[in-house]
Each structure stands twice: as structure tokens, then as C-alpha cells.
Amino acid sequence: MSTIQGTGGAAARPAKSVRVVIVDDHAIFRSGLKADLDASIHVVGEAATVEQAIAVIAEQRPDVVLLDVHLPGGLGGGGREVIAGSAPLLSATRFLALSVSDAAEDVVAVIRAGARGYVTKTVSGAEITDAVFRVAGGDAVFSPRLAGFVLDAFGTAPADIADDELDKLSARELEVMRLIARGYSYKEVAKELFISIKTVETHVSAVLRKLQLSSRHELTKWAAERRLL
């Protein structure tokens, strides 16, 4: 229940419905997820392998792809490879990673490949629905665990002004990440820090961008220690 919290209100949801492609190699999981998703989410395609996924995504051009981290086929790169194969569509299509794995290598690899967020497969349908709308709206979706990975990778000391801005999190971003890691929803984070939800979302997106773009020494080292590179 706590894995991912949304704003909880319908205000965050765009008026139009969202077109979604589900990529997962387990047919049972796909059908279960489809049944769990909100009625305003239209599943326009399904895929079970890397090749199928790239083809379906190119054909359907969905708003959001729910992407399993581990997939058969392709060169063995799983979800990461699907994102790489759909690179030209990244501006219009957003990827939300789904995984049963909490392993840092799986999560960070898909995020760095371009996914806009990550949720575990054990979360409820309502939570995934919320995450889909959030990602479709251009925001990032952070679970407490992903926030923990970020804090682990970037360190918990705030950035100096002299630092390369990609290399460290600002004091405010750190605060936001810490609260998310503690299980706070975006709304609760906003309340705790006396800022608007929009500002929280901005901070989270900035962190996501840093996670994707930073080539910082410590991040590389952190990743290498966990055999992510």
C-alpha cells in the first residue's frame, strides 16, 4: 500500500483517457493487471518479448508503457532493451517500470535507460492506475525503495554551489527523497515541507533527470560495486 502514493485526488488526472501497452512475459499477470486498472485506462496492446514489445509500441504509440524489467528475447537486455529500441518515441511515450525484483541493478538500469518511474508488482491496481496517470502527465514516480537507491547512490550530503549540479542533490531534493523513502505520499511531502504538490513533482522530476544523466564518479562507483555497469 505504501509503495507508491499519488496525490490521491482526481485533479492530477488528465481529462482524456490514457492509452497503455502492457509488456510482461506472464500472461496471467497481464490479464490480472488489465482487470485491475481503472476504466479510464485503455490497454491498446500487449507484448511478451522484447521484439513484440518494440513492434507493438511502434505501432500503437501509446501514452504509457507498463514495462516488466525482466523480459525474454532480444539480446537479453529485458526492459532496458525495449526502451532503447523505442528511443525515437520517448518524447511521446513514457515508460513505467514494473518489477518483482527490488534489486538495485534491475531498478536503476531501467531508470537510467529512460523509464519515468518504477513500481513493484505487488502494489494495488489503484496505485498502478495512479502511477500511470502521473507518468502520462510527465511526472516521475518514485517508490520508497527507489528513493532509497537514489539516496544511497548520491549520498545524503547536500550539494555545494561549486559542485556540478548533476552530481549531487540539492538540499531540498534530498529532503523530498528522504520523505518519499520514509513512505510519504507526494501530498504528505508537500504538507510536511510547506510547498505545493507541483513543487514536489518538480523536485522529483529533477532527481530523476539527475539519476538518468549523471555520470558522477560516485554514482559510477556505486553502480560498479553492485555490478550495474
Binding site: S2, P144, L151, T156, Y184
Partner: peptide, 22 residues
Amino acid sequence: GGTVSVYLEASDGQAEIFIKDR
């Protein structure tokens, strides 16, 4: 009654633990 979130942050200076329920 629901999921409990536990967050541990340990550094050289201190160790902090947050336990949150809903």
C-alpha cells in the same frame, strides 16, 4: 493495520530510523 514503512539512514554522524503507519 496496514503496511508499515521503515526507513533507516545511517551515516558516520548518526543513525536515524523512521517508522510510519497509516
